[in-house]
Design a protein around this nucleic acid. Structure first.
Lengths: 208, 208
DNA sequence: TAGATTGTTAATCGATTAACAATC
DNA sequence: TAGATTGTTAATCGATTAACAATC
């Protein structure tokens, strides 16, 4: 199908930003200068990044927005949908399960599960919380590749293990626990208490 | 009080990781090798990073965990508490409002507010959802410096504006909207649909 | 043609790794 | 003393910026 182009890490990071910028652009063409301005980076950097793609800009015009969008969508495989399951029906889990913008990113939350009997049956958006026993069935049936892991820290590792055995390839880890996983599994850590440290230091720096 | 040491961005990023690692260490000393192994980076890099701090390691011993922890806590100002308000009592807002590990990071959520009358009065952890009109009072009373912004995209910019007028210094932005703010305000963007793009590309790369 | 903008190469900057002396 | 580990300097690597020719 499509051979994977090599992309420097920093470039890949910015391509995601460009993709987002383009989503709210209503013009036919956009220049590197404009993109750069919105993101507060150098236009040269934008051009360098975009030069990794097949899309070419037109001198005096800039880049054809529709073409660029399409190529970025292909690059991230946004057009065919990936199934995601949420494990842990706490507020965070429910937030993921009802997060609208996933739609446009090619991610579909197919189920939300919980170990606690009392939560089972509760309505969450279009879904109903299911018992954890349904995990295998759900993963098989929907070919689930991503899990939003929102369980409590004490069961994080064992839950991850179970998911991996069932063939889940990406664990989006909100538990704050450092997970051990085989090297062909991607763990994406989302750690709010680490994130606030940047804010704390920023506030400190303001006070000199 | 304490002069702010200059720290390379990449180093600062890792110092947060070291801080987290140290939280679950039960030994008196830890070597750069051990830290490096846990984080899958080079021990030389760990030593270089730690050399920016006042703490010195002991040859043959490593670094005194308690001392290192203390210095990192000071560096991030974790010991005096910062007040945070959550605006938007949807699942995400409630998740932030009840997020336990903030405690250890020196952040205290003092209130959760919503514009929707129907949500006002609802219990969320130790808090009760308050009407948006209480914002000014809350910010003044608790000297709020951080806001977790969980409102819908259409009111994101105006809400941010109001917060900034009241003196809030950091906006933790979950709305997906690119906010315009004065340069002395820090916006920390948390965009789940951008985040999943990494996972999408990873999955694509697995399929060759 | 002149002007604007792309795309690429060279120069610079910053971050990581390698090497190794210092030290307990 | 020998061995382990730190801390620092030098070498390498990767990413950004500067410069500028190509092109519409």
């Amino acid at each position: 199908m499509c051979e994977m182009i090599y992309l420097p890490k920093a470039t890949l990071e910015r391509l995601k930003m460009y993709k987002k910028v383009l989503e709210s652009v209503r013009k036919e063409y956009i220049s590197s200068e404009e993109i750069a301005q919105i993101l507060a980076i150098n236009p040269e950097l934008v051009r360098k990044d975009l030069s990794y793609l097949k899309t070419h800009g037109k001198p005096k015009m800039g880049y054809l927005v529709s073409e660029l969008k399409k190529e970025l969508n292909d690059l991230f495989g946004v057009n065919d949908f990936t199934s995601m399951v949420v494990v842990g029906a706490n507020f965070l889990g429910k937030a993921l399960a009802t997060y609208k913008p996933f739609e446009r990113a090619g991610v579909k939350v197919v189920a939300i599960l919980d170990t606690d009997e009392r939560n089972v049956g509760e309505r969450v958006g279009d879904l109903v919380v299911r018992e954890i026993g349904a995990l295998e069935r759900v993963v098989r049936r929907f070919k689930v590749e991503i899990c939003g892991l929102c369980v409590s820290p004490d069961v994080a590792q064992e839950t991850a293990q179970k998911l991996i055995e069932l063939g889940v390839k990406v664990i989006w880890n909100f538990t704050g626990v450092r997970l051990s996983v085989p090297e062909d599994v991607l763990v994406v850590d989302e750690d709010f208490s680490t994130r606030v440290l940047d804010m704390k230091r920023y506030l400190l720096s303001r006070k000199k």
